[in-house]
C-alpha cells in the first residue's frame, strides 16, 4: 500500500478564523480539528477520466464564445502540479473559475455593475498530463469590490481547485498576478500568515511561453502534500 501523506502545516495555511476577512468570523469552527490517522478513505480519492473532458473545456477563450471572442487581455495560464518531493502529480483534475476582464462573474448572485461579456463563461477544467502539467487559455480577470470591513477590492485572481491522488491532497486556492498592487491590500490574501506563502500564490509573467501576436503567458505551479518516508503498514489507530 502507498505511504500516508505528510501532516498539513496549519501555521502555513490561513487559520479558520481570520479577523481581516469578515466572512470567516461566523464560519470558523471554534474547536481544534481532530487528527485522523490516514486509512484507505484518505489515501484514495476521486478518479476522473479523460473521456469526460471536452476538447474546449480548458479553453476559456472558446468554451462559451459565440461568434466573437471574449474581450480582454489574452493569456496562456500554465504550470505543473507537484508534490512536496517535487514529484509530478499526473492525471488529476484541475478546475478554474474567474471573473471576466471587467471583474464581473457569470453567476446569478453577482450584482456588480460591470457588464457580463456575452462571449465569456469563466470556467475551465483539464487533467494534468504524465508530467503533471496543465494549461488553460483565458483572459486576465479584472479586480472587483466586495463587502468587508472597509472599501475592499480583490486583486485580479483565478480560483483553482485541484484533486490529488488521494483525498488528503484536495485543495482549493487562488492565483494572483505578478506585480498587482492590490495583492498587498487584500483582506483575503492577508489571511495567510507568512509572506513567503503569499508569494507562492503569485503567477509569474512567462515571456518564453508567450505566443507572439496572440497571447501573453503566466506560469503557476501548485504543490500538494508529499508522502511520508515510511511505508504504510499496520499502524495502530490513534498512533
Amino acid at each position: 500500500m502507498t505511504a500516508p501523506f505528510r501532516p498539513r502545516d496549519h501555521a502555513w495555511h490561513p487559520p479558520a478564523r481570520a479577523p481581516s476577512y469578515r466572512s470567516s468570523l461566523a464560519r470558523a469552527p471554534s474547536h481544534p480539528l481532530v487528527a485522523v490517522p490516514q486509512g484507505l478513505s484518505e489515501l484514495t480519492g476521486p478518479v476522473f477520466g479523460a473521456d469526460a473532458i471536452g476538447p474546449l473545456d480548458g479553453d476559456l477563450l472558446r468554451n462559451f464564445a459565440g461568434a466573437d471572442a471574449p474581450v480582454g487581455e489574452r493569456i496562456l495560464l500554465h504550470g505543473r502540479v507537484l508534490d512536496e518531493d517535487a514529484r509530478p502529480v499526473p492525471h488529476v483534475l484541475v478546475e478554474i473559475w474567474q471573473a471576466n476582464a471587467g471583474g464581473r462573474y457569470r453567476h446569478k448572485t453577482d450584482g456588480y455593475l460591470a457588464p457580463l461579456d456575452p462571449n465569456f463563461g469563466g470556467c475551465g477544467r483539464c487533467l494534468t498530463d504524465a508530467e503533471g502539467q496543465f494549461r488553460f487559455r483565458t483572459v486576465r480577470p479584472g479586480p472587483y469590490p466586495f463587502q468587508n470591513h472597509e472599501p475592499a477590492w480583490r486583486p485580479a485572481h483565478v480560483h483553482f481547485s485541484v484533486f490529488g491522488s488521494g483525498l488528503a491532497q484536495r485543495l482549493i486556492t487562488q492565483m494572483y498576478f505578478e506585480g498587482d498592487p492590490l495583492i498587498a491590500k487584500c483582506p483575503i490574501v492577508a489571511t495567510i500568515p507568512d509572506a513567503r506563502a503569499v508569494e507562492r500564490l503569485i503567477a509569474r509573467l512567462d515571456m518564453e511561453n508567450a505566443v507572439d501576436f496572440e497571447m501573453l503567458a503566466y506560469r503557476f505551479d501548485i504543490v500538494l502534500r508529499g508522502r511520508t518516508q515510511t511505508h504504510f503498514e499496520n499502524r495502530r489507530e490513534g498512533a
Binding site: 498539513r8 487562488q174 483575503i188 506563502a197 503569499v198 507562492r200
Partner: peptide
C-alpha cells in the same frame, strides 16, 4: 518554501462557476 504545500484560499461566493456551473 517552494516545495511546501500551496497555501489554501477560500473558494469564495462564486465557487459554483467552477465546480457546478
Amino acid at each position: 518554501q517552494d516545495l511546501k504545500e500551496t497555501p489554501s484560499q477560500t473558494a469564495g461566493p462564486y465557487l459554483h462557476i467552477g465546480l457546478s456551473p
